[in-house]
Nucleic acid binder design. Structure first.
Length: 273
DNA sequence: CTAAAATCCTGGTGGC
DNA sequence: TGCCACCAGGATTTTA
């Protein structure tokens, strides 16, 4: 059950803007205190009340709610977190650990089976997202910029793509998919890449993320859902992820699963070097 | 400096 | 059928 990555988080943000921008928080019920990363639970409850949502953005895999008064509400969904907007009188959701009440009679509900997700309320968003690497889909994220970043690294490509300080927003699904499209092995070392391979990787990352965004994300086992509760479509277009034993879409060789950097990793050993 | 391992969680899986 | 040990998995922290 992979977590929401850049395309999923962006799709969720897009779905939340309509129902939530302009709303004011009137209170919050916290059923699992560890969900609140900062500040303390009591201060969080006191500080969120009366704040109006001015805008909602994505940075990496984080959702950032810009609030009146200057604070930012920042949410990371981690593995299994979901955000849904429902009327306050709708039946309670299973695993709905945190429920924000809004001034129009609706609620923002944070569901999380595994309780890995985290919520922050901070005056300066950089306390939470300040160390993230560049956004791979930003217009000003160029090949030469990517190349310069890669040239500083020497480890295996898969852990590098998962490192949010290197680049923000890529997780296990899109790391595997991008490496397949680039024809690069997940254990290929960054310091042995040719200029041509770096360009292939740069283009593959952007292409894979754009396609997934167009498909409104990947849903596995119902874990990720859009803000309206519906599922994404990209699981139908995955080339290697979770496809162990199935034929490689490029050469027909069976997809294999290996472990790289402690992560399950899918690849075609014939196409990826 | 890098890299690996432990940590947090619980539904699902596989073994017997 | 029932029980149970084990696994996935992002980001952070700890250890080597």
């Amino acid at each position: 059950m992979p977590m929401p990555e850049l395309p999923e988080v962006e799709t969720i943000v897009n779905g939340l803007q309509g129902p939530l921008i302009g709303r004011t928080f009137t209170g919050v019920r916290i059923g699992w205190e560890n969900i609140i990363a900062r500040p303390t639970v009591s201060e969080f409850q006191r500080r969120i009340r009366g704040r109006r949502i001015l805008s909602i953005r994505r940075r990496g895999k984080y959702l950032i709610f810009d609030l009146s008064g200057g604070d930012s509400l920042i949410i990371h969904l981690k593995m299994t977190g979901q955000l849904l907007v429902k009327p306050a009188d709708a039946p309670a959701d299973k695993y709905g650990h945190t429920v924000f009440d809004l001034d129009d009679g609706t609620q923002l509900r944070f569901l999380d089976v595994r309780k890995f997700g985290r919520v922050y309320l901070v005056a300066d968003e950089n306390e939470v997202v300040g160390a993230l690497g560049p956004e791979p889909l930003a217009d000003d994220f160029t090949l030469s910029q990517f190349s310069a970043l890669v040239r500083k690294r020497k480890g295996a490509l898969k852990p590098l793509l998962l490192n949010q300080r290197f680049m923000a927003g890529i997780g296990n699904i899109y790391a595997d998919e991008a490496l397949f499209v680039a024809g690069l092995h997940p254990r290929h070392k960054a310091d042995t890449l040719t200029d041509e391979e770096i360009e292939r990787l740069y283009r593959a990352i952007r292409q894979v993320l754009r396609q997934a965004l167009a498909d409104e994300g990947t849903t596995f086992d119902g874990a990720y859902r859009k803000a309206d509760g519906r599922e994404g479509r990209h699981q139908e277009n995955l080339k290697v992820f979770r496809r162990k034993g199935q034929p490689c879409p490029r050469c027909g060789h069976p997809i294999e699963r290996i472990v790289v950097g402690g992560r399950g990793t899918y690849l075609c050993t014939r196409c990826q070097k």
